[in-house]
Structure formats: structure tokens, C-alpha cells
Amino acid sequence: MAANNPYKSYQQNSVLQSTPGELTLMLYNGCLKFLNMAKKGIENNNIEMKNINIQKSQNILRELMITLDMSVPVSESLQVLYEYMIHQLVEANIKNDPTLIDEVSGYITEFKETWKQVIQMNRQQQYTSVGEI
């Protein structure tokens, strides 16, 4: 019987106990990590590393698309942006173009920063509401 990996247990618990907003933030962080690794793959002429990490980033973008609440008007705009980013990553993969990866990283960074602000505002509202009781 293999010993439990405490780091893996911590990661699993943090995902299970996270809010939807925190999970979205984790996806953005993961996407940025894989985009950076894909860019390193291009710089080091490591085609396999580039391809695998671009595909991981595309999978995260697809997951973000699936989780969109299409009853919210902004979701249609986000869906179009996610589709555009996936297309740019296909082009980056074919052309070995790190500037296209940088473009997608820029968008993801903006989304990540926005989500961080939303999470902070929600927490402040929750704490304010609890203080009023």
C-alpha cells in the first residue's frame, strides 16, 4: 500500500473546498503556467513541450467555456474571447510563434486580476453582512 502524498491531499482538499470563483482563479493560474511552459518549449526548440502545454491551456479554456452561465449577457462575449484565444493558440502551435502565446497570456492575466478583485469584493460583502447580524 502506497503512502499518501500530503501535498497531493492538500491540493485535492483545496479544490474541493473552494468556491466557484476560486476554482476559476485556479484555472486561470494553471493556464498561465502552461502558457509559460509552452513559450519555453518554443524558445528551447522543444516541440513536444510546446505542444503538450498549448493543449493543456486550450483544455482549460474549453473548461472555462463549458462553465459559462449563458443566461448572463457577458457570457456570450467571454465565449467569443475564449474561442479566439483557442484559435490563437492553434496558430502559435503551428507557427511556433511566442507572440501569440504572449497575447493569450495577456488576456488570461487580465481575467485573473479581475477575478481576484471579484473574490475580494465578495469576501468583503460577506464579512460586512455577518457583522450586521
Rank of each mutant, 00 (worst) to 15 (best):
Y84M: 13
M85C: 15
M70K: 08
F34I: 05
N93T: 02
L100T: 10
G106P: 14
A3I: 03
E63W: 03
A3P: 04
V130W: 01
T128H: 05
L25F: 09
P6D: 04
K33D: 02
M1V: 14
Y10Q: 12
L100M: 10
E113L: 15
S14G: 10
K116C: 09
P98F: 09
Q120E: 15
Y82Q: 03
I86E: 11
Q17C: 09
P73D: 15
Y28S: 02
I60A: 10
N29S: 06
N53L: 06
N59T: 02
N4V: 06
Q117L: 12
T24L: 02
S18V: 02
E43V: 05
N4Y: 13
N46G: 10
M1Q: 13
V15P: 02
E76R: 11
Q58S: 13
L27Y: 04
E110M: 12
I66H: 08
R62T: 00
N44P: 13
I101Q: 10
L25A: 05
E91V: 11
S18I: 04
V15L: 14
P6Y: 06
E48Y: 03
L23W: 10
G41R: 01
L81S: 13
V104W: 09
V72N: 04
P98C: 13
M85S: 13
W115I: 14
C31Q: 09
Q88D: 10
Y127C: 04
T99C: 04
E43C: 10
H87I: 01
K39M: 08
T99Y: 00
G106V: 15
P20V: 02
P6V: 07
I52F: 06
K112M: 14
E91T: 01
M65Q: 11
Q55P: 12
W115S: 05
G30Y: 08
G30D: 05
I60V: 12
L68Y: 12
E132M: 11
K95I: 00
K95W: 09
I133Y: 07
I42H: 03
I108P: 10
I60R: 00
E76M: 07
G30A: 01
F111K: 10
S129C: 06
Q12F: 09
I47E: 00
E43I: 06
L25P: 07
Q88E: 15
K95R: 11
L27F: 04
D69Q: 05
Q125H: 12
M1A: 15
Q12M: 14
P73C: 08
E76L: 01
N93V: 03
E76H: 03
M26H: 00
